[in-house]
Amino acid sequence: MTTTPHQDAPTREGGEPGDPREVVLSLSGIHKRFGAVQALTDVRLEVAAGEVVALVGDNGAGKSTLVKVIAGVYQPDSGDIELAGRRVKVGGPRQAQDLGIATVFQDLALCDNLDVVANLFLGQERVKGGAIDEVAMEVEAWRLLRSLSAKIPSVRIPIAALSGGQRQTVAIARSLVGKPKVVMLDEPTAALGVAQTAEVLNLVERLRDNGLGVILISHNMADVQAVADRIVVLRLGRNEAEFYTDEVTTTDLVAAITGASDNVVASRAARGKEQAHG
């Protein structure tokens, strides 16, 4: 096991003046077991309002399981989930949405045959007198997209006509329809081009500036370091390390993710160094 910087909910050395960030989502002691596999062991995670927390880890580190626990898809075996200081039980995806936890899934989950407005409000359509209130929805759609400075030419074109980045924009805008407190983005930049990735990262920053807590799951270290305030590393279902982005190098990060300092080679190298010094 490596050293774990910021063992407890990190209070930054020196602290940022005038920064009483309110913790919106806090998980502690989360355990989840699938049959013989202990997927999550005593995992904790905190997100404050206006903060981007990146969740990184190798395949099988437990990221997806943790995301699904937060999104209400899985129930943890034990552990507490607190939302804005209040203990909650997330019974299902619908309940998570109602509580204010929005998730943007990796595979987008948009309907290609419907237009942007229909997709934004899918499952939460505005109804007036028994019929769908298209006008109210269109107005709200423009308001949402403008608040993200999104570049969508028209909200009346089918999703299939949009580029990958624009689709991701719609998916993220959709997560905001229910006025959430926390937004989880699962690999939002996977399969996107350079410019589109930048577009989505801008979007993530805008979510943060709007005072939302953002959890960003990504394999891309460059993206993570570009937008995250804090990086939480999971390894083999445990909290491996936690860094402030401006205090960490990519090498440290990769070492924590792969557990590179936890193997024979690394310990030999460390021993060699000690001997050389000694």
Binding site: Q97, F105, A109, C111, D112, N113, L122, G123, Q124
Partner: peptide, 12 residues
């Protein structure tokens, strides 16, 4: 009809 999984995740 367009994307069953997306519909399910939207709470439909």
């Amino acid at each position: 009809g367009g994307n069953e999984e997306a519909a399910r995740r939207s709470g439909i």
